[in-house]
Nucleic acid binder design. Sequence first.
DNA 1: TGACCATAGTGTAATAAATACACACTATAT
DNA 2: ATATAGTGTGTATTTATTACACTATGGTCA
Lengths: 236, 236
Amino acid sequence: MQSNLPHLQSTFTTDCVIFGFHEGELKVLLIERNEYPFKGWWALPGFFVDHNETIDDAVKRILYEHTGLTGIYMEQLYTFGGLKRHPQGRIITVAYYALLRLDDLKSRPVPITDFARQAVWHPLNDLPELAFDHRHIIDKSMAKVRRKISYSPIAFELLPEKFTLTQLQQLYEAIWGRKLDKRNFRKKMLNYNILKELPEFQRGVSYRAARLYRLDKRKYARVFQNEMTFSRETNG
Amino acid sequence: MQSNLPHLQSTFTTDCVIFGFHEGELKVLLIERNEYPFKGWWALPGFFVDHNETIDDAVKRILYEHTGLTGIYMEQLYTFGGLKRHPQGRIITVAYYALLRLDDLKSRPVPITDFARQAVWHPLNDLPELAFDHRHIIDKSMAKVRRKISYSPIAFELLPEKFTLTQLQQLYEAIWGRKLDKRNFRKKMLNYNILKELPEFQRGVSYRAARLYRLDKRKYARVFQNEMTFSRETNG
DNA sequence: TGACCATAGTGTAATAAATACACACTATAT
DNA sequence: ATATAGTGTGTATTTATTACACTATGGTCA
């Protein structure tokens, strides 16, 4: 960019699509707005980016405020600058998505801010009508996650530290919206050699308890390049 | 995002990585700055985004000013908001990359603006030191193009309408920085069935003239989903 | 006009990866 | 003891990837 020009001024914000996975379902954290415009509507958590913080820091702040957690996996998605996306004038928003372990959150109430009446996890398959262009932002996030899960191990961000292969498979199925073959899934996933088999099993289930695994972080980086793919499987 | 808050103001710009392909080499269009900071340094073409134009429109404007062309393939890359990226304070930039047919441009002089002494195509493998974080932006663009060329037919944006298979292969080789096997490349590319064989041949070469092809647009969309890949080839 | 140069153009076999597919096992609850 | 519900495993088939070397052609130049 070039300088010495009139510094045109504009307002910009960040909005964050926070994904969680619980009981085989993908969920998104939405707030119910307590302000105009779109008062009473559901919307993505978001806020203005202060001029002395980075965009990443603004997003971390929002994530902390809504989850009480730090160190959440997050990635910038896209910057929306349509002239009509906000009824009060053009507001640019830098959208991020975040993936988090819903289990870490179980007993932690979602804090309420002045701007939101409540914050609630909504199943991705059953979203209410959303304020602004937020539905579009969620759709675009899902498209990115759906692609990215094929070549990087982001799925593990959504699972508890110890998980069963069935949980992992259900997560892939939820993200891709299609069934995978159990034998092929396990064969392939174990072949990547990024999972560490634990000497532990599920507890409290009324059927054969499944073995627990966790991600082997030493091998994580290697796989990031290897590009895991489950590309063409069609069978149930 | 939420409203009714003090509208924090900030300045933001767009920078554009314009890629071209010529004589087997990838090139980037850079301007020589005629303004402080970084006066005399090479930089990406860019400009402030006006508050009544979309970001896409700002980029189209920049592309037109520097190439005289419209309808160029472009895509948003990333938004950079580091506090120290500009010595005069935090300026957010939305980076785009664009792909264009250098041949369309052959006899067209690159226009000079007040802010730039000259605009020159630089080979990607031999870039000068760049102003701001522009080197980082170019690297990130290349990473995206390198990935995206595997699953979408963006390569054709860089070639003339009629091209030989060797040109197409050289382009993939330039983008991936490694040699591909000619027979495997042709077999695979022709199998996608997205190329239309023309009844024409190269002219003016002092060796056997190669057949010309062009992209078959009817089949283009289908391949966008099919995910062309040349993943593991290691042989020269 | 024939030899030469530079690049175009072609096929097959070996290996690796993806896919389709079905049944026995086990922990728990009743 | 038995019903239930989900765990855990192996193989054959198909498809994709890789490795590899020679002939064909158009143009140039002696």
